[in-house]
Every structure is written in C-alpha cells, then in structure tokens.
C-alpha cells in the first residue's frame, strides 16, 4: 500500500463497515456513517454533560456551551429578528454538527464527513426546504413576492423573475459547494504537504534537511484549517439565518 501514502484523495474514500442491502439499495453502515454518529454523540454528549449541573455560576465547560448558545442566538436574532428564534433548534443543530464534523476531521486518520458534497448538499436542502415549507405555510402565495422586485417595468418582469428564481435555487448549491470545497481543498493541501515530508526524507541527509520546509508549511496549514473549520461552520449558520429571514419576511 505504498501508493496510498502519497495519494491525497485516498482519505475521502468511503468503505462499508457493516455491509447492508435492503430492497436493492446499498444502505451499508460506512465510515462516513460512523463519523456522523461520532459527531452527533460528541456534540450532544458534550452539551448534555456540560449543562447537567446547571450551575448558576457556570464552570468552564458549561460556559463553553453557554457561549455556543449565545453565539448562535445572537446570530439568528441579528439576521432574522426575534421571530427567527423559533428556528433556533434547527440552526444550532446545524452549526454544532458542521463545527464538530469539521473539527474531528482534522485529526489524522479521521474521516471528514463535510468533505463529501452529498452530505453538505443534504444539509443545504434541509435548510432551503424549511424556508420553502415555512414560507408557503405562513404567507401562502404571498411568499412568491420574494421573486418580484419592486419597481421593475412590466416588460422586463418575466426575465427578472426567471433570474431571481434561478438565483434562489442556486442558493443551496452554493451553500453546499462552499463548505464541501473548503474542506476538500484544505485536506488535500494538508495531505500533499505532509506527503512531501515523507518523500523528501527518502533522499538522504539533504532531503531530510529540505523536508523541514514542507513540515513547517503543514504546521501552518493545520492552524489555517482549524480557522477554516470554525469559519465555515459560522458561514453555514449565518447563511441559514439569512435564508430563514426571507421565509419570515418575504417582502421587506
């Protein structure tokens, strides 16, 4: 398996752990599923344990949970107003899932769930589905005013509405592509630079001396990846809030 060591894509391979086929569909429990379960267990376990004591004066762990709560709460209130707080459970779950998945993906040999577009796309579809269902349930066909900007001359309206609809549909796509691309690109770069260290060291003393450079790069990139993991979870949650705002107030 020497070739696998320098193959930066190998880390994204999905392989079944418990093969399972139901009605012609492959529903095996894969390494991706395993890490999704790990993510959820970690996130909910941490929140449960840290808030179990419910101290008035929070300890260290409890204040981390409270910070996460207030962070997401403020974000949602800013973007979607007080009414938006009814979506707090959704936004908070999404934020925690993406954040924890990104973070545990940084460990060597761990699988990054969010580096697969099908996972991020499913999350984005969930968001946009919520926006559509809630928007139509609350405003009826008034929700369609979202696609009709004010002050557009009548003869331009079909064109503008078509463009607005495409723009709306492209939102889940760009939301998912952004998260997935950031994770994929970051992990590949990290792997490539780490691979340089290994292959350079094979060239004797000069190689070992030279491999300090990619090693330093890999260390710097790891720090950057940590930042990106936080930032992308934040961006995902902020955009979710903005889209929910459209469902709450389609015509401002």
């Amino acid at each position: 398996m020497a070739a696998d060591k320098v193959d930066p894509i190998h880390q994204f391979q999905i392989h079944p752990i418990i093969p399972l086929h139901i009605g012609g569909y492959d529903v095996s429990f894969t390494n991706s599923s395993l890490f999704m379960v790990v993510t959820i267990v970690l996130a909910s376990g941490f929140l449960y344990m840290s808030t179990a004591s419910r101290a008035l004066i929070p300890g260290r762990l409890q204040s981390v949970s409270e910070m996460a709560y207030e962070f997401v709460g403020n974000m949602l209130r800013d973007a979607a107003g007080k009414q938006g707080m009814q979506f707090f459970p959704l936004v908070f779950s999404l934020f925690m899932f993406v954040l924890v998945a990104n973070l545990i993906g940084l460990f060597p040999y761990f699988f990054t769930v969010t580096s697969h577009i099908i996972v991020t796309f499913t999350l984005a579809i969930l968001v946009i589905g919520t926006v559509l269902v809630y928007g139509f349930a609350k405003h009826g066909f008034g929700f369609l005013k979202l696609f009709v900007p004010h002050g557009v001359p009548g003869y331009l309206l079909p064109l503008v509405v078509a463009i607005e609809i495409i723009s709306f549909v492209s939102r889940p796509v760009s939301l998912s592509v952004r998260l997935f691309a950031n994770m994929l690109a970051g992990h590949i770069t990290l792997k490539v630079f780490s691979g340089f260290v290994v292959s350079l060291s094979a060239f004797g003393a000069v190689g070992i001396a030279g491999s300090v450079l990619p090693l330093a790069m890999a260390v710097a990139l790891s720090a950057l990846e940590l930042l990106v993991a936080f930032l992308q979870a934040y961006v995902f949650a902020v955009l979710t809030c903005m889209y929910l705002n459209d469902a709450l107030h389609p015509s401002h």
């Binding site: 495409i166 549909v169 492209s170 796509v173 760009s174 952004r178 691309a181 950031n182 930032l231």
Partner: peptide
C-alpha cells in the same frame, strides 16, 4: 482566500442551476 472561494462558488452555482 475565503472571499474568492465564496464569490466563485456563488457564480458557478448560478450557472450550474441555470
């Protein structure tokens, strides 16, 4: 870098969906 990725993903998403 994040800004560049954000803007390009927005543009590509529009074209792909269209």
């Amino acid at each position: 870098y994040g800004q560049a990725l954000k803007l390009s993903s927005e543009f590509i998403a529009g074209v792909v969906v269209g």
